[in-house]
């Protein structure tokens, strides 16, 4: 006998757009910072000229985060409770995130200071700490929703990898665009070389391929998973969140940039800058379906 639900209470998705923007900003910040560390931490000297710009970009994006996070709280001025010993709760993922979001900008500031002072030794030491914190901060954004077993779409160990890969490619994309703008206002001898831009775009291409692979794994998991997982993909992602999932993430954020970066267009400015822009925008689509899509089905239960 078929059962039709004729009445149920209405529930809201508790986390929304501010959280999606926060996830995007932290990701792009971490991605930019990785580029900054290429020169000073990993010793790839040709990346040193862009290190300062990348660090400042990472810091600026992270400065917006507290505005989003604190004002999204019901009681914004109680954010201090997250840091007080009597309140801190070690098993809560958000508690780990608080420590990371606090320590990551501090380490970035110190690292940037040593980059400006041209102190290779200390820039490398602090840079190693900062890069671990940058990756951890973005890892946290993946797990904060993953560690809710009731959210079937989010409850996958692929979450941190999806977030980190998105961070890497969106960070590079944004960095390429910022460097392009910077080049318009600097003397020719100070400009970032085109070959470096092309190389960064190639790293972005590898990231896009890996992101496709992760999305494929996630797709397989939902298709062969439980009824809830299947429903989450088939109905929520492919119907309600079709625009952010397929159009924004897959087509605009991954497919078109991939085509641009594997064809001869990868040597043209339109190819590199176009792909960079599309990736930076498209990754936001993943943040939307991840946060709001993950809560969608359950709001009807």
């Amino acid at each position: 006998m078929e059962t039709i639900i004729t009445y149920n209470a209405v529930h809201h998705a508790a986390w929304g757009t501010p959280i999606t923007v926060y996830f995007w900003l932290v990701g792009a910040s971490a991605g930019s910072f990785v580029l900054s560390a290429f020169g000073w931490v990993f010793g790839i000297k040709r990346y040193k000229p862009l290190a300062l710009t990348a660090s400042i970009l990472a810091i600026v994006m992270l400065m917006i985060v507290p505005v989003l996070l604190i004002w999204d709280l019901g009681k914004p001025f109680r954010f201090i409770y997250l840091m007080l010993p009597g309140y801190w709760h070690g098993t809560a993922p958000m508690s780990w995130g608080t420590l990371l979001i606090l320590s990551y900008p501090i380490s970035m500031f110190v690292y940037t200071y040593f980059v400006i002072k041209n102190d290779q030794k200390w820039a490398k030491i602090v840079g190693i700490i900062a890069i671990v914190l940058a990756l951890s901060t973005h890892w946290y954004t993946g797990v904060v929703m993953e560690l809710n077993p009731g959210r079937y779409l989010n409850h996958t160990p692929l979450a941190p990898l999806l977030f980190l890969t998105g961070a890497f490619i969106s960070g590079i994309g944004l960095m390429i665009l910022v460097l392009w703008i910077q080049n318009q206002f600097t003397r020719p001898e100070k400009r970032i070389k085109w070959e470096l831009m092309e190389e960064m775009a190639q790293y972005m291409m590898y990231g896009i391929v890996f992101d496709f692979f992760l999305l494929f794994l996630d797709f397989m998991q939902t298709q062969y998973g439980t009824a809830s997982e299947y429903l989450a993909h088939g109905t929520v992602l492919m119907e309600i969140f079709f625009t952010p999932y397929i159009w924004l993430e897959v087509v605009i954020g991954l497919l078109i940039p991939l085509i641009l970066l594997v064809t001869p267009l990868k040597h043209t400015r339109i190819g590199v800058y176009g792909a960079a822009f599309l990736v930076a925008v498209g990754v936001y689509g993943m943040r939307i379906w991840w946060v709001m899509g993950g809560q969608y089905i359950q709001s009807f239960y």
Binding site: L73, G74, K75, R78, L82, M94, G150, Y301
Partner: peptide, 15 residues
């Protein structure tokens, strides 16, 4: 003690 972060709302499988 509640800061209104709604983490518990997201965590609760029963709404």
């Amino acid at each position: 003690r509640c800061i209104g972060c709604r983490t518990c709302v997201v965590a609760c499988p029963y709404n």
